[in-house]
Simulated scan of single mutants.
Amino acid sequence: MPNKDPTFLQMLYTVISENTTVGGAVMASIIATLRILYDDNKTRPMRIILEALTCGALSLCVTGIIELFHLPTSAAITIGGAIGFIGVTALRDFILKIITNRIDKK
């Protein structure tokens, strides 16, 4: 009798394909990894791993904003890809610039 139990890779594929939140995090991680490798600047393995994980975690955090603005859940993949493309450093600098401008105005 053949074994009908799904393998780990089959279960992983099912989770990624059916859950757009996880798909967005995976997309951010993949794009961040490819961006760092393409950039060919400081391509240490630890930097690649940390950048990919941080971009994935950021895109998971953004899913709350997607629900807040009543956007479709498929937007998680697009936003995750954008976060991976922009990168953690550029995103952090942009947010810090906005915060300091608001503090300086007060």
Rank of each mutant, 00 (worst) to 15 (best):
D40Y: 07
I30W: 01
L53S: 10
A82Q: 07
P6R: 06
L68E: 11
M46D: 14
C55G: 07
L60E: 08
N41F: 05
H70W: 05
D39M: 04
V26G: 02
F85L: 15
G87L: 10
H70C: 13
S74N: 11
A25Q: 03
G24C: 09
L58D: 03
G24E: 05
I36H: 00
V26S: 04
V62N: 02
F85I: 13
L71N: 01
L12W: 09
I98N: 12
T63V: 14
L68P: 01
K42S: 08
L96H: 07
I98E: 13
H70D: 14
P2L: 08
E51L: 09
G81W: 01
P6H: 04
I98D: 13
M27D: 03
P6N: 05
N19V: 14
D40F: 07
L34C: 11
T63K: 00
A90P: 00
P72E: 14
Y13H: 08
A28D: 10
G23R: 00
A25M: 14
I49W: 03
I48S: 07
R35M: 15
D93H: 06
I16F: 05
T21G: 12
G84A: 11
V88R: 01
V22G: 02
N19Y: 02
P6L: 12
F69V: 15
N19G: 07
T63Q: 05
S29P: 00
L71E: 00
L60G: 08
D93T: 13
F8K: 10
R47Y: 08
L12F: 15
A75V: 12
T43K: 10
I79M: 09
F69E: 05
R35K: 14
T21P: 00
I79Q: 03
Y38F: 09
N41W: 02
T43I: 15
R92F: 15
A76C: 12
L71T: 01
E51W: 02
L9P: 00
L71K: 01
R35W: 03
V22P: 00
A57I: 14
R92W: 08
T78F: 05
A32H: 04
L12M: 15
L96Y: 13
Y13L: 07
S74L: 10
V22D: 04
A25K: 02
L60Q: 11
T43G: 13
A76K: 04
T73M: 10
I48W: 00
V88L: 14
F94T: 14
L58G: 08
I36R: 03
T73H: 04
A75T: 14
N19F: 12
I79D: 05
L9Q: 06
L68R: 09
L50Y: 09
G87F: 04
T33F: 04
T89K: 04
G56N: 08
T14G: 11
D5T: 12
D40C: 11
T14F: 12
D93F: 09
S59I: 06
K97V: 06
Q10G: 03
D5M: 12
T33P: 00
